[in-house]
């Protein structure tokens, strides 16, 4: 899952991106509205954390512009907390609204819910045969036993599971699992896929040669 943080407070970006990376997200950042809009339009993010008060282009302006072409889930992060502010934010096309200061655990939960909803999955649990994926605790059970996956491996499984039955191209996987600063070495994905197969079973992920991967229904 790849997230864009648009926020002009460097110390806040640091803490947010560190935590999100530790949770297995790929994280891109932008410190002003114009850079944020450019990145949001260029990549298919799974969610955007958007501050309202931004230099050059404010968050609501960014949102309005973005909504002309994209439906990326947007969580507004702002210190403005009146009902009018919330209404204006949501009406501008935001999917959720969180008032600063917030607790990280709430932010992470809302982010998970946002991504889950955007893929059309209502329950935080996804069952695929003997394998249960809990998107809330980011853990995977096989035959009732917890399986240890790295954050990146988990992200790969979650991405495929949320798009179950659909082919997910390698490009898409790269775009969602790696951030803008990582060199997307083409064989890195194969390593992750092979590790997941070792842990969850050989047939858990199907390879469509030259196209991508999928988890069957």
């Amino acid at each position: 899952m790849r997230i864009l943080i648009v926020e002009d407070e460097p110390d806040l970006i640091d803490a947010l991106s560190r935590t999100l990376r530790e949770e297995g997200y790929a994280v891109d950042t932008a410190e002003d509205g114009e850079e944020g809009l450019y990145k949001a339009k260029t990549w298919d993010y799974d969610a955007i954390l958007l501050d309202i008060m931004l230099p050059k282009l404010d968050g609501l302006g960014l949102l309005e512009e973005l909504r002309k072409s994209k439906a990326t889930p947007v969580l507004l992060l702002t210190a403005r907390d009146t009902v009018d502010d919330r209404v204006q934010g949501l009406d501008s096309g935001a999917d959720d609204y969180l008032v600063k200061p917030f607790e990280l655990s709430e932010l992470l939960a809302r982010l998970r819910a946002l991504i889950r909803r955007s893929t059309g999955t209502a329950s935080p649990q996804i069952n695929i045969g003997e394998v249960t994926i809990d998107t809330a605790s980011k853990s995977i059970l096989k035959e009732g036993e917890e399986v240890n996956l790295t954050a990146r491996e988990y992200a790969l499984v979650e991405m495929l599971a949320l798009n179950r039955g659909k082919l997910v191209t390698r490009t898409t996987l790269y775009e969602h699992l790696f951030d803008e600063n990582e060199d997307s070495l083409s064989n890195l994905m194969d390593v992750y896929v092979s590790n997941v197969r070792k842990k969850l079973g050989k047939d858990f992920i199907t390879t469509k040669r030259g196209q991508g991967y999928l988890i069957s229904v």
């Binding site: 110390d11 806040l12 990280l104």
Partner: peptide, 13 residues
């Protein structure tokens, strides 16, 4: 609130 959220987020993280 803005600096306050920096403190809280930094510490929590």
């Amino acid at each position: 609130r803005t600096p306050l959220s920096v403190i809280l987020t930094q510490v929590e993280s």
